[in-house]
Amino acid sequence: MIKEWATVVSWQNGEAQLNCDVKTSCNSCASRAGCGSRILNKLGPQTSHTLSVACDTPLVVGQKVELGIAEGSLIGSALLVYMSPLVGLFLVSALFQALFGTNLAAICGALLGGVGGFLIARGFSLKLSRRESWQPVILSVALPPDVLRVETVTSADDR
């Protein structure tokens, strides 16, 4: 089970809206200047994701919850999203190359196969996302933010 903490945005009728912050490994290693991942992370504007999760326990805005998702569903979705366009690209490109015998046909086949593979992945992902085993679940719930309060008392003698 892969686990991640999220913050409650809202809770109504047994459904919680949760905000998950995207964590990157940038700024944690010594090779920040020449890192390609760091540059790619700067290009993407989205730093958090909002998702809906079923929860019977009433939650408070700002409360932290631990989410979990099965490794198999995560690996399966990654394979679907990355491999189907790639397989489509190679298969249709090879087919067009064999049928027409030109590089232009192979390029057109690669484009058609990649887009077709993407559309197939999109169609399957909509069906697979309805499976209960592919949904994130709430594993644990932290205390609401207003329950725990820490006070420090300093006396005149400590100064």
Rank of each mutant, 00 (worst) to 15 (best):
R130K: 12
L111M: 14
S133I: 09
F96W: 10
L95H: 03
F100G: 00
L111E: 08
R131L: 15
G114K: 06
A98C: 05
F90A: 15
G113D: 07
G117Y: 01
L119W: 05
V115G: 01
A106M: 14
A94C: 10
R130F: 05
E132L: 11
L128D: 04
A110M: 15
P136T: 09
L128F: 11
A110G: 15
R130Y: 12
L99E: 04
A106T: 10
G123L: 11
G123D: 07
F90P: 00
S129A: 13
G114V: 14
G116C: 03
L89A: 09
V115M: 12
L126A: 12
A98K: 08
V92K: 00
V137I: 07
L99V: 15
G116H: 04
F90H: 13
C108E: 05
A110P: 03
I120W: 07
L111S: 13
T102D: 03
R122H: 11
I120G: 00
S93Q: 05
G101Y: 06
G109Q: 02
L112R: 04
L95M: 11
P136A: 04
S125F: 07
A110C: 10
I107T: 07
F118A: 11
C108S: 13
L119H: 05
L128G: 05
A110D: 03
S93N: 03
A94L: 14
